[in-house]
Design a protein around this nucleic acid. Sequence first.
DNA 1: GTGAAAGCGCTAACAG
DNA 2: CTGTTAGCGCTTTCAC
Lengths: 336, 336
Amino acid sequence: MNKKVSLKDIAQKVGVSTALVSYVLNDKRQNRVGKDLAKKIKKTATTLNYRPNQIAKSLKTNKTNTIGLIVADISNPFSSQIARAIEDEAEKNDYTVILGSSGENAEKSAKLINIFLERQVDGIIICPVENTQAQVRYLHKINIPFVLLDRYFPEVKANHVSVNNFGAAYMAVDHLIKQGYRNIGMIAYKTSLVHLQERTRGYIEALRNNKQSFKKSRLKELKMGCTQQEVEKAIDQLLKQPVDALFFTSNTLASCGIKYINKLHIQVPNDLGIVSFDETEAADLFYAPLTYIKQPIDEMGKQSLHILLDKISGKKKMITSNIDGELIVQRSSVLE
Amino acid sequence: MNKKVSLKDIAQKVGVSTALVSYVLNDKRQNRVGKDLAKKIKKTATTLNYRPNQIAKSLKTNKTNTIGLIVADISNPFSSQIARAIEDEAEKNDYTVILGSSGENAEKSAKLINIFLERQVDGIIICPVENTQAQVRYLHKINIPFVLLDRYFPEVKANHVSVNNFGAAYMAVDHLIKQGYRNIGMIAYKTSLVHLQERTRGYIEALRNNKQSFKKSRLKELKMGCTQQEVEKAIDQLLKQPVDALFFTSNTLASCGIKYINKLHIQVPNDLGIVSFDETEAADLFYAPLTYIKQPIDEMGKQSLHILLDKISGKKKMITSNIDGELIVQRSSVLE
DNA sequence: GTGAAAGCGCTAACAG
DNA sequence: CTGTTAGCGCTTTCAC
């Protein structure tokens, strides 16, 4: 095994103390050390191929320059894009990200938090899952910097960045109505997560403001992680009614939905208008490309990281950010 | 700021040395400590809400239980699924993963490797990008456990796990021929990466073994990261010839390709058969669901991790693994 | 200008 | 059975 070279090795070789080497290599107290000596130290470091040991540094400085990120489900493109955005930004700021996926499971989330804390991360970004309010409160209690992303709990105060879900859903449904659709159904999740409830609220409000009555039978609420079959059943039930448009509340639901609609040979957009919340790759590939709400993923990632960095550097004030989504209109919602 | 509690705090409170506390809390040398004392120590630990500091532990033991993972492009589902598979398996084995995405860029890859080494990861799994042979040799030289995943360099000996790309491509093209397609074009990458070249070799070999001549004009090689427009141009050029089937060498190319074919209103599978290497979400959504080669992603992730763990625990023998892909036949390649 | 020395939180070698 | 001590690699205070 190649012994790793440490400050000590350099110090011995040059014949100075480790402290001096540390100074030189970190460009600190430049005035404190002779130019020639500094040069010699730097040269020896490169010769020996010195690589600082971050672990030792972290132990000493009590700072790891690492943040923990918990996404809900890394196999969902939304999560992987979020992760990517955060990592990119973290790297620019000299931070490393350790990533965990909770799989919408509170226990797994707790376990990840524990791992992160043991590893002394400087801060945590979480897309919290249902029933993790206590975890969030705990983070608050132990006073570690953290930011909730995409989701939040109105009853637990915490820094968070999320999308204006209400506004985006409202925009989507309003668009359908303006296009001439009159009987809009919605496929959503049965959940305690407020950010999803907000989408339903947007749907209902848009109907009301356009003088369309909200019919409960047109709102199907499925459990998270539901199967293709369950989505199909919901669509069957909706299509028995005089429904001429569907609003899917997530990319996964939309993806399942259009696969089925494809099979049924229903004519989109003329027989059925469709809008989806969030993208699917499918969105473009469906014979009638899907109108969807584009979430500002990069922006969300960036903002959450910078809020976290602010917290880490000691800022106290609570920050919340609510970013607007964008409606991307394509063929699936435009009557021909 | 909540002061973190350390072994020392517990030791002081109970009135013993830190060493003893360490023994008890790690269940080591159980015979060495009295039952009552052990109980008292454990109780105090929970009361104080003690959480071991992994950083300190790592510094001492020279082991971080962390591995670094470099994928080529985290926004590609192939990468995120690989990452997920590896993380799942790592967690089961008490390892944490730090993830980086090279974006097919050698410099970025080098930078990530450096970060990983500074952070004293116990091992590294890499999906290497072009022109990173030197990096691989370096890892070998400094004697850190590592495994190449998905890709490898035949001229550089290293542990790796990959797909039998030749066999899978052969199977795909052979299937098309058996279905009655006679003029099969291929859209591939112009690259030095052998795993991709193997796919082309599979294509050519399958043609030859079926007594079909290989025509250079039917093989389009695009640069990695090419645009939708470039794919469209390649397809245009192929369709000018008497081509009745297309083999796409990656999910990205296939995804671009079928979007265009969709636009052109070409009848798949009757006017044009299609097979893709690797999945797209699109595969199922295209009006004629795509036949594709399913890569054994979970298996690849698992194997690479376990090979790495073997290396970490000191096994010397070089290990390479070549896993077969599977051809999933759907409508796009079956003449009606 | 320079360096000795303490110590971050932990484990393991070494006494009793 | 129980406990002490040294030291992992680094930074930083303080003394020269």
